[in-house]
Design a protein around this nucleic acid. Structure first.
Lengths: 421, 421
DNA sequence: ACAGTTTCCCGTAAATGC
DNA sequence: TGCATTTACGGGAAACTG
């Protein structure tokens, strides 16, 4: 006999890492008439799993049974919270590790079941329920893949327990998907994606025709296939940016100072007619988790010239916050006096108005010492290189700077540093 | 019956962290006449421990028995290697946790015992041996304390198993101790300490009279009491420097470019009559794990002037290697053109001759972008401050630089944002 | 409240398995 | 051999515990 028993599913952390504690709570939604005895709930991982359905099997390492208790905060329901639950992989299950097709670890769905039974007026009643699908990972490096699965699953099915979903995952429309992507950013970074940003993402994922929201995206294209010419998939790239924002760019992102997702063409079109020194912030498309700025200058011929700095990644940004980089950035052109080329955040906001609030002086006052700060510097040449060697030669300013400091032996290696477009 | 049975003690890693695997090997040094049966060895942690001797009790989480085997590499001895051993703390031992005095975790000594028994011609023979004392820690943050204990123990006792050693640790003579300290540097950093460096350390630890090698140092002074006015002990300070060298300064240390341990007085005496721009490298005495450079300049009055930069710690050094800092360091004096004040490594070695080999151009060649490097910069004033505030006021150059960028902009958070929603 | 100590767990690196 | 996945564990931070 099954009875109504709705647990509070472990809905948010649908991803569980082995060896890391998680919590789940079950609540009995009917009031039992007589509760003069203890009601025990048992948790089982992957109960009644059809054999061969998953590649990996796990078990709960910690206590799996607990007594239900009257919940204070609510209307006196019975509930139980399992804390400090921990998953561990069963190795060598019966010596047969079923290798079932191309479903990767983060596509393998599991579930957590809860059982209770009680006796009321001589009738034995079994209660049972189970969680939404779970992804089990063994290292945080698998978290992005896990999130992708959860997103895709939630996007495309309303079934509470379709564990075979990724055997043949449906396609999503770009309209649906873009909404979910924006929601990721608004949830985890505090600000979603605007129409232009989504449009760039759509074109990146699907090509020019993607302006149509009806355009279909396959799971593989979203998360499994590498972007052409790169060694990462679309979602891995996007998630690396989400992480970069979360850790290093949160206030700047929330102040809407990061255009971020812009094609190089759009970037140029935007900056072309702007005041020299106008810049915008854009995420790297060539490397994971990088952000760069591009500014416009007047070239000698009178045309607009666009210059982008080598993208900053988390390692640099943890040495120097991005707002400080923008404040302090200097370019040495032809060995002259360093100048900060960044004047106006696109379209025309004075730099300090946009970022001043976030500047951090880096000043530690430790008395007998003089303070020292890190300044990001680029060197640039305006005069065209005398010959067209495959690698553009070094600017005179940089050359001076290096030769001045490098012993004769080291010059060769340091020479091969390209810049200028 | 006890028999000669000398194991290869776990000598080097005398410190074991709970939950982290370690390895130990036991070798039977006598050849058994008849080895037609298996000889089993069992490992026991803290065997026969007098109750109340230690605060914490541990057990071996993994397999504790193994069969001895003929060792290939040696002359056919029997030996056994325990791998993947792991320690875990027994909690709530009999409900009584004996709190025995002021012996800290890293002073608590433990031991690992090995037992085997065999029967030869009807006689039962018990073999037993045990390791040198072990320190058990639960976090790497306790490693320096553990090392200190191991050093002190080895320095002051030849007993193989005096587990109560730290109940009343003997004093060491500075002569003995300084030798051990130098040995730490030569073992872990590749170059020991010279007489002058040791002399500075001796004075730091014991005051001026410490030039005598006979001077006695207490364990407490070495490792437990804080240095006057600081919140760390002598050894914690020294070990933080050892770590800094190991991770960030190895080649520079081994090239003997770091004077390192110099009092400020000696530093000045050394630099006083040198060419302006002569500098030396010294470890910070005020903060853990920091290194600074001090250079000499000619002041307006004609006297020598000494300037030290705020010490670089591991976080800065992992963004920028120290050799590059020395190469690129710039001072902006009174807002003028940046100049590198570092010319000659004391006594008179041109900077690039000393460090050129280690320069690293920081140049990542990622095509469409211009490279950017981090330059450490200090600003300095030559004109004396108008008033004598307790904190040295900001130099005009720095002030300009900051005001130029800090505009009246503690403005409200969300200004006109460059992108529409 | 607090300091000494342990636990937790991310993130990198290395090991393992397929 | 290379790729996918897991294990190992340092290091920072939170939690614990007298």
């Amino acid at each position: 006999e099954k009875q109504p028993c709705m647990p509070t599913h472990p809905q948010k952390p649908l991803i569980i890492k082995t060896g890391v504690q998680f919590t789940t709570k079950v609540r009995l939604l009917v009031k039992l008439p007589e509760v003069d005895y203890q009601l025990k709930v048992k948790t089982i991982f992957d109960k009644d799993l059809p054999p061969g359905r998953v590649n990996r099997q796990f078990f709960i390492l910690t206590t799996t049974t607990k007594i239900m208790d009257v919940e204070e905060s609510s209307n006196g329901c019975l509930s139980v919270e399992f804390r400090h639950l921990q998953l561990k992989e069963k190795k060598y299950v019966n010596g047969t590790k079923v290798n079932e097709g191309p479903v990767s670890v983060t596509e393998e769905l599991h579930s957590l079941s809860f059982e209770a039974q009680f006796n009321i007026q001589g009738i034995n009643i079994d209660l049972e329920t189970c969680s939404f699908p779970l992804v089990v990972i063994s290292n945080v490096s698998q978290l992005p893949g896990g999130w992708a699965s959860v997103m895709w699953y939630n996007l495309l099915t309303d079934e509470p327990r379709n564990l075979g979903f990724f055997a043949s995952p449906q396609r999503a429309s770009w309209g649906q998907l873009s909404e979910v992507l924006s929601w990721q950013f608004s949830t985890f970074a505090g600000r979603g994606l605007n129409r232009e940003q989504l449009c760039m993402l759509g074109e990146k994922l699907l090509g020019q025709q993607a302006s149509q929201n009806e355009c279909q995206v396959s799971w593989s294209k979203f998360c499994k296939e590498n972007i052409h010419g790169k060694n990462f998939s679309f979602w891995m790239w996007l998630d690396s940016i989400l992480e970069l924002i979360k850790k290093h760019l949160l206030p700047i992102w929330n102040d809407n100072c990061i255009m971020g997702f812009v094609s190089k063409e759009t970037e140029r079109a935007r900056l072309k007619d702007k005041e020299p020194g106008t810049f915008l912030l854009r995420f790297s498309e060539s490397h994971l988790g990088g952000i760069t700025f591009t500014w416009v200058e007047q070239s000698d011929s009178g045309d607009a010239k666009f210059i982008s700095v080598e993208p900053y990644t988390k390692s640099r940004l943890s040495a120097l916050p991005f707002a400080d980089i923008i404040r302090d950035y200097k370019v040495i052109t032809d060995g002259e006096v360093p100048e900060n080329p960044l004047k106006f955040l696109y379209p025309d906001i004075p730099k300090d108005e946009a970022f001043g609030r976030l500047y951090n002086s880096q000043q530690n006052k430790v008395f007998p010492y003089i303070p020292s700060m890190l300044i990001p510097i680029s060197t640039l040449q305006t005069t065209p290189p005398p010959c067209s060697s495959p690698e553009p030669p070094m600017s005179p300013g940089m050359f001076d700077m290096l030769t001045q400091h490098l012993s004769p032996l080291e010059i060769e290696t340091a020479m091969s540093s390209p810049y200028s477009e």
